[in-house]
Design a protein around this nucleic acid. Structure first.
Lengths: 242, 242
DNA sequence: CAGTGGTCTAGACCACCTG
DNA sequence: AGGTGGTCTAGACCACTGA
């Protein structure tokens, strides 16, 4: 059964059929799917093509396959949410970045150790303000390993997001980004920058970018105005494309 | 080149080889990979097997393939972080759940509309306290569509996490979970439950569970003590299994 | 036009699970 | 032992890209 008249691939149709059966409750959590051979017969397609469809469903988290047993419907992993740092902040309005300052902090072992920058005691600190419609939204402080011969370009400082900035500045390849979300209150200095009251509660987002083998490449701390910034996440991307 | 002596599949070795080339900087962002035919020749394997390895890399977000052109190294999507609601909270210590109350709120159109429960005006509200080592960590309020003949069992109320609870209580299949993270201050009542001071800043995590076609099935609001709860996320799961 | 990735086949052998 | 999914092959045709 080659893919004639209709442009969408057969394995994709198979995957969608099963997906709809799951979402409508025909196939329930824990149910076993027909075997790959059976599905191949039903759809009159070869087993490898069936497997391609099965793989899509497994990737989306709708089913799990167990060697020697079969494929089983699983509850979607709705406990895993994806937070997309782009399209995040406060609505669709464009954010502007206002550079406050760039410092090279030399030989501060204390700081370097705190940032996890083993073997490097010179730290670059970048501080900038996120502005939306002339209203300050958050303060960003970024700490980077000093890297000889890799200057920070003006344009990078103004526009690049954090993982991108690290990638541009480092020879090492960033492979992981860890995030911690917590709550604080604004200091006098922070309140002034954000044009808000001191002691106002604030959302604090800390990121650490790692190269392979857990080598820390950079740390970013965002202090966000509580009424002008909201973090959102959704489970959807994990089960996307189907 | 069948898979002899070594137990790991060939396509997996291929994927790991390329992964290491990317992580060590041999292959850089934007570089094109050898064609599938070339890789097949290099590794002395068939093209379908090469494609299996390529698919792994694409799934992990390390490369992107473009029809008619080739496969290209991409920067990892470190802007997408995954929040895993299990293993989240405050360390590895086990959380206990203390049920505060269950209410059936009848014919409250205002509330039902606010929750997005179209066509259903009866709402079940579950309130419970998250406790760690005898210290209250967060207050949870869950709102569920009333569903005839689907009682909430004691055990579910005590242990089930929110998406699971919704799945158990509803006939509809949950397919999406949206989350919003914001900041608030404790009310007098909340402060009392959390054994904390009134007006203390608090992390607020709101979740909405949907069935297909954006039908809202349930809403959960967690108010977390700022010093006893921290949300963490990592980019790792998206690029996992390699 | 030649080259690329995307789809698909009809086989094969294997490792794993269950009765 | 018989059934399942996991791996792999050696072909084939297609749609898309670029020169």
């Amino acid at each position: 059964m080659r893919n004639r008249e209709n442009l969408i691939p057969v394995y994709y149709r198979l995957a969608e059929d099963i997906k709809h059966q799951i979402e409508s409750g025909v196939l329930k959590d824990g149910n076993i799917l027909p075997t790959e051979a059976q599905l191949g017969e039903q759809y009159a397609i070869s087993r490898m093509t069936v497997r391609q469809g099965i793989a899509l469903l497994a990737e989306a988290g709708l089913i799990e396959t167990v060697k020697g047993k079969g494929s089983f419907v699983t509850r979607l992993r709705l406990n895993q949410l994806v937070i997309d740092l782009k399209n995040n902040g406060t609505g669709k309005e464009k954010l502007h970045y206002k550079l406050i300052g760039v410092n090279l902090i030399r030989n501060n072992l204390e700081l370097a150790r705190e940032l996890g920058f083993s073997g490097e005691t010179n730290v670059i600190m970048v501080k900038r303000l996120l502005v939306k419609e002339n209203l300050p939204v958050a303060i960003e402080e970024k700490f980077l390993r000093y890297q000889k011969g890799k200057p920070l370009l003006e344009t990078q400082l103004e526009y690049a997001d954090f993982p991108e900035l690290v990638a541009k500045h480092q020879d090492s390849v960033p492979v992981r980004n860890d995030m911690a979300i917590s709550v604080s209150v604004l200091s006098a200095e922070q309140a002034k920058l954000l044009e808000a009251d001191e002691m106002l509660p604030a959302l604090v987002v800390k990121q650490v970018i790692y190269a392979k083998e857990d080598i820390s490449l950079g740390v970013s701390i965002m202090v966000c105005h509580k009424d002008r910034f909201e973090l959102t996440a959704t489970s959807y991307p994990l089960s996307g494309r189907l």
